[in-house]
């Protein structure tokens, strides 16, 4: 058997991969039968296998609202903007962090950058509220009032929220990605820079022709992985940071918040599995496509 012989030849690599394969199998593949629940009407007595098939019945609610397209559009647009801004800023931040020579300062900046990631979204929601509270918030009380401007009812004005959510998301996640890029930059062979300095290349030139090209594989991987989740919104951000204010829906409703509300109204958990499956399928198709393109351009940077 050629397969077996090949595996035997690389048995060391196989053995190294086996614990991971097993863990993924237990954690992810064993429960995968739950995907069928998206097409079933779960009955506790009949169990997962015995419950009746209902075809696409569970998916209907997703498109029942005439806002369905608006919701999908929001989800994709927010994710796209977040991805773009996050990548550019994180790479920039990583490069700047790498430039700091003083160790103490460097440690301080790096630590500060990832701090926001430790705070749960519930607390982030309260912090945002501290700024935007219509009666006592910093912005209305300490900025608009002294300037003799009308206070703004932030939680009733949808127009501001695309910006607010982008700021909050960037604040929370940019440091995290920057650390990944920083790890990549640190791994770059110093000889490249030595050679460039000897050639008299400016800092800018070093950045654009050494740093960025050399961390491109990391950028590609992070982007590819993000593309797979383009249909999945960060529920915490859109639910907690907006304090679940209904009046902001016009600009802040995304798939995950819509599904959550549907669950609240009906209590039918079957709805969640169908929505999740749809999100996965879309992400899957997108990643396969993008990966195909990446593969055409540079084989080694593709996911598989």
């Amino acid at each position: 058997m050629p397969v077996l012989r090949q595996l035997l030849k690389h048995r060391a690599l196989v053995i190294l991969a086996i614990p991971g394969i097993i863990m993924l199998f237990i954690n992810n593949y064993l429960p995968m039968f739950g995907i069928f629940l998206a097409f079933k009407d779960l009955n506790y007595t009949k169990g997962v296998w015995g419950s009746d098939w209902v075809g696409l019945q569970n998916f209907k609610f997703l498109f029942a609202s005439n806002d369905a397209w608006m919701i999908i559009k929001h989800t994709i647009l927010y994710n796209a903007v977040f991805l773009l801004i996050n990548t550019v800023l994180a790479v920039l931040l990583a490069i700047l962090l790498n430039e700091v020579r003083r160790k103490v300062l460097s440690k301080f900046f790096q630590s500060a950058a990832i701090l926001p990631n430790f705070v749960s979204m519930v607390i982030v929601g309260y912090l945002v509220y501290g700024f935007l509270n219509p009666e006592l918030g910093f912005i209305n009380k300490s900025i608009l009032e002294p300037m003799d401007k009308e206070p703004i009812a932030w939680y009733a004005e949808p127009d501001y929220w695309p910006y607010i959510l982008t700021i909050v998301n960037t604040w929370k996640t940019v440091g995290y990605s920057a650390i990944v890029y920083l790890a990549a930059i640190i791994g770059i062979d110093q000889e490249y820079y030595e050679a460039a300095r000897i050639d008299g290349a400016s800092k800018w030139k070093q950045m654009t022709s050494i740093t960025v090209p050399l961390i491109t594989p990391v950028i590609i991987i992070l982007t590819l992985l993000a593309v797979g989740r383009i249909f999945n919104a960060d529920f915490g951000l859109f639910y907690q940071a907006t304090m679940a204010s209904g009046m902001l829906k016009e600009t802040t409703e995304v798939i995950d918040t819509y599904v959550y509300n549907a669950l609240l109204v009906t209590g039918d958990t079957g709805l969640a599995s169908s929505a999740g499956l749809l999100q996965s399928v879309v992400g899957f198709v997108l990643v396969i496509t993008v990966n195909y393109v990446v593969k055409k351009i540079s084989k080694e940077n593709a996911l598989f």
């Binding site: 609202s65 005439n66 009046m247 509300n261």
Partner: peptide, 21 residues
């Protein structure tokens, strides 16, 4: 509610934007 379940979800969704306000 079963015969109009999806409508109820959609109505609730429509309400959210106005009812609290």
């Amino acid at each position: 509610p079963e015969p109009v379940k999806n409508e109820i979800i959609a109505i609730d969704n429509a309400n959210k934007a106005f009812v609290d306000g």
